[in-house]
């Protein structure tokens, strides 16, 4: 029957025009449509004027638009939608104020005009961030640098960055010309942008953190300051006795500051304060117990390579031994640990 196929076709066209609605809503709306249209067709037949569905109801697209307009004015989920809509409206209104208010400050009619100029810059940054994120997923161990490294290779990382930046620019131009029509695509794009933005923020904060404080990076990829347990330093002479008021310099002759006391007990406004630091630097630290001094002389650890391999040491922790390496003349392997007091 041509009337039946008319109805089916009309209903299908209405359904197609509503294809962007959520499945559930759409089904609720369309479930009864063929039966309803059949009723309408029966009325038209009864009127006997020979009118078709489209004559009476208008084109399917108009019918679909009218149907869509009836969605969401009874309670239920539309309340939430209304709340969200109002919140979005308020934000937009505030943004318009900022947009017009701040624009002239930097010489533009609107702030948005200026931000639009920055868009390609964002595309480049976005590509770099994407490359960093990919490199991060492959990385084990040390924190990110400023260039992505793939399997430790900077060259591979640079290729990755170049590819990601080019891709991002291409994608940016595309989405600018034709914004994604589907809601899900727009949401996905927004979500991905948010992830990259948060990742970028973390990256910058971490890099800043690292730049602000000195780091000792070991081969194992774990970061430790070997001197952070040292509170004071005692310099020993060849006779094994503590030299009071000693200064330590590095290979260029600049004073070396080791230990909390040396680093913190100073007046920063004093120009040459580094040179005023002498060791031991803490005012009230007792010298370590040295087993060879003074009464019962034991062999100095560096005088004869200890026969039993037993090195008298005030500290068993090898990490605290390292400050001696800062004294340029000492051979590190020969001065393992004797001169450092354990952190208290």
């Amino acid at each position: 029957m041509s009337e039946q196929s008319d109805i089916a076709q009309y209903a299908a066209q209405v359904g197609a025009a509503l294809s962007d609605l959520p499945e559930q809503v759409r089904n609720d709306l369309l479930e009864d449509l063929p039966a309803h249209l059949a009723e309408v067709a029966a009325e038209l037949r009864a009127e006997g004027a020979g009118a078709t569905l489209a004559d009476r109801l208008g084109p399917p697209s108009a019918y679909a638009a009218e149907l869509r307009a009836t969605l969401g004015h009874t309670g239920g989920p539309s309340r939430t939608a209304a709340l969200v809509g109002r919140a979005v409206g308020r934000v937009q209104q505030r943004w318009r104020g900022v947009d017009r208010g701040l624009g002239p400050v930097i010489g533009y009619e609107r702030l948005g005009d200026f931000l639009a100029l920055l868009r390609p810059a964002w595309w480049v940054v976005r590509g770099w961030l994407a490359a960093m994120l990919v490199a991060q997923l492959w990385r084990d161990g040390d924190g990110p640098g400023l260039l992505p490294r793939l399997e430790g290779s900077t060259l591979l990382g640079l290729f990755l960055t170049a590819g990601a930046v080019i891709g991002s620019i291409w994608f940016g131009r595309r989405t600018l010309a034709r914004p994604p029509a589907r809601r899900s695509a727009r949401l996905a794009l927004g979500g991905a942008t948010a992830v990259l933005a948060v990742f970028g923020l973390v990256l910058v904060v971490e890099a800043d953190d690292r730049a602000a404080r000195g780091y000792w990076e070991t081969a194992g990829g774990y970061v430790v300051n070997p001197y952070d347990q040292v509170s004071d330093v005692f310099v020993l002479g060849a006779d094994g006795q503590v030299i009071p008021g000693a200064r330590i310099v590095d290979q260029t002759g600049n004073p070396v500051l080791i230990g909390w006391c040396a680093q913190s007990n100073h007046n920063a406004f004093d120009a040459n304060w580094e040179w005023r630091i002498v060791y031991p630097a803490c005012p009230d630290v007792t010298p370590p117990q040295l087993p060879w001094a003074p009464a019962s002389p034991a062999p100095l650890p560096w005088a004869s390579p200890s026969p039993g391999g037993v090195i008298p040491s005030p500290s068993a922790d090898p990490a605290t031994a390292s400050p001696s390496a800062a004294a340029p003349s000492a051979k590190p392997s020969l001065t393992p640990s004797a001169q450092v007091s354990p952190g208290s």
Partner: peptide, 16 residues
């Protein structure tokens, strides 16, 4: 008032 408005409203009131 259009037919689609009435039909859509009836569906929605029924669902509610």
């Amino acid at each position: 008032i259009g037919d689609a408005s009435v039909y859509g409203t009836l569906r929605r009131l029924f669902a509610a």
